[in-house]
């Protein structure tokens, strides 16, 4: 049975490295050790996931709810699979055959983002590379010029036709990660758009929503639960 079928109505909160697990059973944590630290003043040559493996062991031992880890290579997938309950693959890597194959081989549930550059019709190619893995998909929006994404109902319609559970990445829809285009208009970051995203997701069958606890499009679990309460 699919992990995602048994976990209905949930929020996924992406955290940059360490954070306290949520007490709310409907919120699953995802830890991102390879977060792109553009503003970092110090550079370590260590693999950040490898360097934090003790923390991950502890998290596994103490976790009450399932949690996931964001991965960026087959090597990281091998490490993460020892401790995480599920693997999370970012959109930028959704076409990387080695990563998808390695993730599939773990037999763990996989959450895979659709890259903002990927046509929805090509999601099926991504699923083919994942073979018979237990997969849920996340739509982060479609690139719309620089530092902006559009929530396209046609994408959700086509993803739904794959038969996979899917969710919407509210933080990325509000403001894609990375350094913003210098000329990005401020009105695009209006957080009340979350309501419109959730309404669209609800209408087209989204099962869950993804938020980030850090960055310029951080959304708290309280806000996410407020907008999604009773709508999942």
């Amino acid at each position: 049975m699919s992990f995602f079928s048994s976990c209905k109505n949930f929020i996924i909160e992406i955290n940059y490295q360490f954070s306290k697990p949520s007490v709310d059973a409907s919120v699953f944590q995802v830890y991102d050790f390879s977060q792109w630290k553009l503003q970092s003043d110090s550079v370590t040559t260590k693999n950040l996931l490898e360097a934090n493996i003790d923390w991950l062991k502890k998290a596994r031992a103490e976790s009450i709810h399932p949690f996931g880890v964001i991965v960026s290579s087959p090597k990281e997938i091998e490490l993460a699979a020892k401790y995480a309950h599920f693997i999370y693959i970012p959109g930028e890597l959704c076409r990387q055959s080695d990563i998808l194959e390695a993730a599939s081989q773990t037999k763990l549930p996989l959450i895979v983002e659709r890259g903002c550059f990927l046509a929805p019709i090509d999601v099926i190619r991504v699923l083919e590379k994942l073979k018979d893995a237990d997969v849920a998909l996340v739509d982060c929006g479609t690139a719309n010029g620089y530092s902006d994404t559009l929530l396209d109902p046609r994408v959700l319609f086509l993803i739904k036709k794959t038969g996979k559970k899917f969710g919407l990445h509210l933080s990325d829809l509000l403001a894609p990660e990375g350094i913003s285009y210098t000329h990005r208009p401020n009105w695009l970051s209006d957080s009340s758009f979350i309501e419109a995203f959730v309404a669209t997701g609800q209408a087209l069958g989204a099962s869950f929503y993804v938020i980030k606890s850090y960055g310029k499009a951080a959304i708290s679990t309280e806000i996410a639960l407020k907008y999604t309460s009773g709508k999942l």
Partner: peptide, 28 residues
């Protein structure tokens, strides 16, 4: 597609060779 993958950039930099980075089609 890999232009923002931290570990890959660190490894490429460590070789001391010229590192050519392609701009992601969505990146600014």
């Amino acid at each position: 597609f890999l232009c923002k993958q931290r570990e890959l950039l660190v490894a490429a930099a460590s070789t001391g060779k010229v590192v050519q980075i392609k701009k992601g089609q969505w990146a600014t």
